[in-house]
Nucleic acid binder design. Structure first.
Lengths: 224, 224
DNA sequence: AGCCTTATTGGTCAGATGGCCAACTACGTG
DNA sequence: CACGTAGTTGGCCATCTGACCAATAAGGCT
């Protein structure tokens, strides 16, 4: 047999190895949760020994924090791409895309991750700080989008920050149910159907349209 | 010495002991989080041996689920007392009291608990079912309050359930920030001040007034 | 009073976790 | 080619967790 129990010991430059660990940890966080980020778990995934992970992250909590930051930033760049090279798309289209995709079913992992981080930050001060930073970044990005929309005359509000906060509270509120499996209906006393209430489907869009003085249905229509 | 290392072995009727365990576990959950509910932790608190807790709850997850249900139900009865003996208070006053107290700082523990349970339910099927039940109970109670308000002519809406869901989404969204310590401002790049934005202070009240066609400020004024 | 059910104890066990450290070796440097 | 830095290994440890079980004794019953 050519494959021995111990894989070939490959030696990588610290920066690359560190990035590799972070990337793996972020994926685990999105797939299975932040508490599944464990020295052994990451090591197994990478085919290295647990001690190596501990070498790059002497405090395991730091790995968790940075992995969350990595995942959150990556998802944010996808959902709310920074302005410069997106200047051609209208703020309305960008906001619609952001909200529609964010509250869509394919983004459940992200909602779960935020729920995860917000709770876990109760016990981990480092993660708490990271969560606040990521919240701040999202808030700033969305506020910028709203302000640009106001400048272009697409949105109308006297309080861009207030509108942003309201929209985000709504998004986070919808995200609170990310772990309720939707498909467990047909339960007589269950509440499975309530979460499919039409008022909830487009709630984030409705709130945004209300706060930004848009005609109802505009955002849904603007979503590609 | 009159106090020996082993306390007097007291034997209690099963029902009483079980209730005692549940009460203690619920308090731990509210104070420190659901993951702090541990056989040993509860046993220490009660001055008994860990094995005894395991005897009453052969599956530790069931203790967690029931403790959450206990805490959630207790808090709900406080914030949203069932109708009969509260029929004298107007729906407006009851709704205002519910929202003001719920989003108040003294209710942080409750928000944290829900955040905790919603995340933890990702890994514990039993807890997931319990969370859904408790959500359903709160939803039913609030919907009943809204419908009564509509009957009395205090509220106006064609979709009581939709209004209830919207209000609860907003409450849950605000609760998402329960673990961000508010008092860490004066941080140049921090977002501590954003959470003190005036639009957030009364957001739940504002949404409720909007959905129920109430004059702005009415609920704040109706809160005792 | 004695008995008998069972609440309660005390101990063990396996599994998982983070942290630590000496030894090994891959790889760039001289 | 030899050397030495440092990336990597393998192993050990303390700690915490839930689960399990035989032995004990408390308290109600006859």
């Amino acid at each position: 047999m050519t494959s021995r129990p111990q894989a070939a010991r490959t030696r990588k430059p610290p920066g690359e190895r560190r990035a590799e660990i972070l990337h793996t940890a972020a994926r685990i966080a999105l797939d299975e949760g932040l508490e599944r980020i464990t020295l052994r778990r990451v090591a197994d995934e990478l085919g290295v020994r647990p001690g190596l992970i501990g070498h790059y992250f002497p405090a395991a909590d730091d790995l968790v924090s940075e992995a969350f930051a990595h995942a959150a930033a990556q998802e944010r760049d996808t959902l709310l791409p920074p302005g410069s090279h997106e200047a051609d798309r209208s703020p309305t289209a960008r906001l619609a895309g952001f909200l529609v995709r964010l509250t869509g079913a394919d983004c459940l992992d992200l909602s779960r991750l935020w729920l995860n981080a917000r709770h876990l930050s109760r016990f981990k001060p480092g993660l708490r700080a990271t969560v606040r930073e990521q919240e701040s970044l999202t808030r700033t990005a969305l506020t910028g989008l709203v302000e640009e929309g106001v400048r272009r005359g697409e949105f109308r509000t006297d309080d861009p920050l207030g509108a942003t906060l309201h929209i985000l509270v709504t998004v986070d509120g919808l995200g609170a149910y990310a772990n309720d499996d939707i498909d467990s209906g047909s339960n007589g006393e269950s509440n499975g159907d309530d979460l499919n209430h039409p008022a909830l489907q487009d709630l984030a869009l409705t709130v945004a349209e209300h706060r930004l003085a848009l005609t109802p249905g505009l955002l849904r229509a603007a979503a590609i």
